[in-house]
Design a protein around this nucleic acid. Structure first.
Length: 431
RNA sequence: GUGAGCGUAGCUCAGUUGGUUAGAGCACGAGGUUGUGGUCCUCGGGGUCGGGGGUUCGAAUCCCCUCGCUCACCCCA
């Protein structure tokens, strides 16, 4: 093969494109019914924009280049900086809260592996301008709404929820000094990749004694079902510092999604800009990487030069999500658009009538197709109609001169003669 | 960027200790049963065996390099 697509990219042939459209339609539909408005921004930005929250180290993970004027640009690896820039620019004139979503393609210069490509789609939704837990809850509800829309159930996936301040408080109580807090978060985040001994050693370096290490360990491993905060409180010996979680919990209950949620204090999420609630969607067996992740980031808009605006949001990529749906057998067999009617000539005389008829049907909004084959063999033509999964075959023979045609329902096999003028209504009725 | 495993037709694979013009099924295309579909029959297009170099009389098969894919590490916004 002479030319190959670049590493980590995908070609979308009709079947893959049809699935991609199905998925993005679901994202869009669910976001809209949850009251979010769609936005988009440029595919590339000034490189500096991406350094704001992620630092210089991010550059090696980016596709970046220079324009002819020497400006340093980069393909977007995520949408949040663009979002922050857009909000900052118009902050004073936007009604609050701002509830926006988008479906950008994003590019990252990393080595592809399961669940990660160099170009992917990411559904983002954010609520900006509210510090109320109802905003956090609504983001989580939006996620659950989408998961359910795609056929997933609580036995397939969980929303794991944690809270930065709660975890911080617990760590402090266990004896982690303030200056080692970030290191503690890091250890928490990496716990599944470490050997038990390494974990213990890391915890000891944070200044924790054997007892505290054990509690630390226990805290990360334990999962607590949503709606049972009391249990969580008891088991970590904490009271009075769960206010946020308590209110969130009430909201989750009111939204009716507690069966999908669990508290997992081991969820930290990479970078330090999250300030409150954090959450991830995981396939229950834990075999896949996170299907979505997000949380509250109350200082981020300000960091990008905007006013001080509290915000909460998440991102969900198409790659892991599709993997999980595939494994659960939830990818529909065929989502390619199929014709409403396939027009078939059954006599020499009917041939010139085909294209004008198809044109008229299409003008009426009917998906109509015909064969490029020259044969009049009805069997062959019906086979083609059936291959493309047409709902009806419209068969024209000599009687079509008098306006009489045969309409065959290709699913039931039932066939009847009717005047040509009644065909559009008959086809649309079953659409 | 690092490491491991794998590269034979669009897909799934076969190819007997290296031995003639590299095969099958599915898919795709053309026809047949002179007018009704997932069947059947015939024929066909398509592979420089990922690419390059080496060993050999002879390489899909053995060796080296390279590219790509997969999985993991780094990172995960």
């Amino acid at each position: 093969m002479k030319y190959q697509g670049p590493r980590g990219t995908r070609d979308f042939y009709p079947a893959q494109m049809a699935w991609r459209n199905t998925l993005t339609s679901a994202w869009r539909k669910v976001a809209i019914r949850n009251g979010f408005e769609e936005i988009d921004g440029p595919t590339f930005e000034l490189l500096d924009l991406y350094k704001v929250k992620s630092g210089e180290g991010i550059v090696s993970e980016l596709f970046h280049f220079e324009d002819r004027g020497g400006r340093e640009l980069a393909l977007r690896p995520e949408f949040t900086p663009t979002l922050a820039r857009m909000v900052a620019a118009e902050a004073n004139s936007l009604p609050r809260p701002i509830k926006w979503f988008c479906i950008p393609n994003c590019c990252r210069a990393e080595r592809p592996q399961r669940g990660r490509l160099r170009e992917f789609l990411q559904w983002n939704a954010d609520v900006i301008g509210s510090d109320q837990p109802v905003a956090d809850a609504e983001c989580i509800f939006l996620l659950v709404d989408l998961l359910a829309e795609l056929g997933l159930r609580p036995e397939h996936v969980h929303v794991k929820i944690s809270h930065r301040q709660t975890v911080r408080h617990i760590l402090a109580k266990l004896g982690v000094p303030e200056d080692k807090m970030l290191a503690a978060f890091d250890l928490l985040d990496r716990r599944d990749k470490l050997q038990p001994a390494e974990f213990t050693a890391g915890a000891a370096q944070l200044g924790l004694d054997t007892f505290a290490v054990e509690r630390f360990e226990q805290m990360c491993r334990r999962k607590y079902p949503a709606d049972d905060l009391a249990h969580l409180c008891r088991s970590i010996g904490l009271d009075g510092h769960l206010k946020d979680l308590e209110i969130l919990n009430e909201q989750l209950r009111a939204f009716g999604i507690t069966p999908w949620c669990e508290y997992d204090l081991g969820i930290v999420r990479g970078l330090a800009y999250y300030t409150g609630v954090v959450f991830e969607v995981h396939e229950v067996s834990g075999a896949e990487r996170a299907m979505a992740g997000g949380g509250r980031y109350d200082q981020l808009i300000e960091l990008f030069g905007g006013p001080s605006l509290p915000a909460v949001g998440f991102g969900m990529g198409d790659v892991v999500l599709t993997n999980v749906l595939y494994d659960k057998g939830l990818i529909p067999e065929n989502v390619l658009p199929s014709p409403d009617v396939f027009v078939v000539p059954a006599s020499e005389q009917a041939v010139p009538r085909i294209t004008p008829l198809v044109a008229e049907l299409r003008r009426q909004g009917i998906h109509a197709r015909f064969s490029y084959k020259t044969t009049l063999n009805v069997g062959k033509l019906l086979k083609e109609a059936s291959t493309v999964q047409a709902a009806y075959a419209l068969i024209l023979d000599d009687r079509s001169a008098g306006g009489i045609v045969s309409l065959k329902n290709l699913r039931s096999g039932e066939q009847r003669d009717l005047p040509l003028s009644e065909v559009p209504a008959a086809v649309m009725r079953n659409k």
